[in-house]
Simulated scan of single mutants.
Amino acid sequence: MAASKFRRPGWSRRAQYSLFFSFVALAAGLALGFVLLAISVVAPRTFDGLRGAATDATRPAAEGLASIGATVGGIFTGAGNYWDAANQNATLKEQRDRLRRQALAAMALERENEQLKAALELRERTVDTVATGRIIGSSHDSVRRFAVLSAGRSNGVRNGMPVRSPDGLIGRVVASGSYSSRILLISDRSAIVPARILRSGEPIISRGLGDGNVDLRPLEVGRNPFEPGDIIVTSGTGGLYPPRVPVARVVRLDDDGAVAVPMATPAQSSIAIVMSPFEPAALAPYEAPLDEAEGAVAPDVAQ
């Protein structure tokens, strides 16, 4: 007959002893627990030393667990702070770019207002103004130097009329359409402007170099009358260009002349004024003095 699967412990003395001592240990543990609980209630400070020893024994483990917790918490906190800093940085960059765009727009508006004000004052001073327009294009890299003005025949613009801006002379009209005109700049190789040195009043000739600059030559050969920084203005000689209009500023001297940069360029002057060609006043007819006229007539009267 096979042994029962659920065999009672009474069949084995060792099992009986194990079960007995287990009950005894459990009863002793419960009794000790009740005794310790009673002592802790009646005299709470009795186990202070034991508690301190237990705390000292568990200190390394507690410190290690605290360090691990602080490290994990620091990682999550640092990640959160980094994310917040990244968002704040992106927001600040966006604000900076917006403020920069606003500043550039304000600067452009201020510059345009200055040009409009200068053009208005120039138009008030200039009685022979034909039209006012904007420079809407120019040949920057080409050897030939031209600009396009937003004023044409419908505004009274004709070929040969001088064009200037508040900064100085730009050139002259060489082709005019109904609503736009083509301007030959003073820096073009075919542009010649009779001028003077503002400092000394000496007459000179300005000729374009085709690279954005102008070449200055004196009428008197043999000496160089220019100085760096000299301002060149139109002389009015020969007509077309009115006198005392700024032309260029000397930047470099050579053997018998100088190289200058125009005072007004299409890139800097968005507003231009078309003027009537300058016509020097004709010489008044010679009138003989009164005594000479009487002397001439006296013989006829005597006769």
Rank of each mutant, 00 (worst) to 15 (best):
G64F: 05
R8I: 07
N224K: 10
A260T: 00
R217K: 10
P285D: 06
E220I: 14
P246Q: 06
M275L: 14
A2Y: 09
L169H: 05
R14V: 12
A258H: 03
R223D: 11
R101E: 15
V163E: 06
R125N: 12
T234K: 03
D48M: 00
A131V: 02
L240Q: 03
S269I: 08
Q88T: 08
Y82K: 04
G33R: 04
L198Q: 12
L32Q: 04
N224W: 15
Q303M: 12
A3H: 12
A264Y: 02
S180E: 15
A31Y: 11
S269R: 01
R207P: 00
D56I: 12
V274I: 03
G29Q: 10
E63S: 07
F47K: 01
L184R: 03
A296D: 11
S270Q: 12
S165I: 11
I197A: 08
A258W: 02
A248S: 06
D256H: 08
A131L: 00
R14C: 10
R144P: 02
Y179G: 05
A106S: 06
R249G: 03
E294H: 08
T132G: 00
D48V: 01
L19N: 09
S190C: 09
Y17M: 13
P246G: 02
S67E: 14
S180Q: 11
G64I: 09
M1G: 08
Q95Y: 07
V193I: 14
A103D: 11
G229E: 08
G160L: 02
A31T: 05
G137A: 15
D211T: 09
S165C: 10
V148H: 13
L240N: 01
I135R: 04
S200Y: 12
I135F: 12
A2D: 04
K5A: 14
D128T: 04
A86T: 06
I136G: 10
Y17C: 03
Q268D: 12
L99E: 08
P225M: 11
V174S: 06
R100K: 15
P60R: 09
S180D: 14
A284V: 04
V250H: 05
G69R: 13
G257K: 10
A79P: 00
A106R: 06
V127L: 14
A260Q: 03
R45T: 06
Y17Q: 03
L92M: 04
A288Q: 10
F146A: 07
G80H: 10
D291N: 08
N81C: 04
L109S: 15
A284E: 09
T265H: 00
K5F: 13
L109D: 15
L104S: 04
L290P: 01
V173N: 05
R111V: 07
P246T: 05
P60L: 02
I170W: 02
Q303W: 04
R51W: 13
D84V: 08
D230P: 09
E292A: 15
P228G: 08
E294P: 03
I232H: 00
I232R: 01
A62R: 12
R45Q: 12
D256R: 13
E114T: 06
P277F: 12
R252C: 07
E287M: 09
A281S: 09
P246V: 09
V163P: 01
G236M: 08
T77I: 15
V221K: 15
A264Q: 05
G177N: 02
R153V: 14
A248E: 04
L216Q: 02
V143A: 13
A258I: 02
N87I: 10
V130D: 10
V130I: 11
A103Q: 10
E121N: 03
G201P: 00
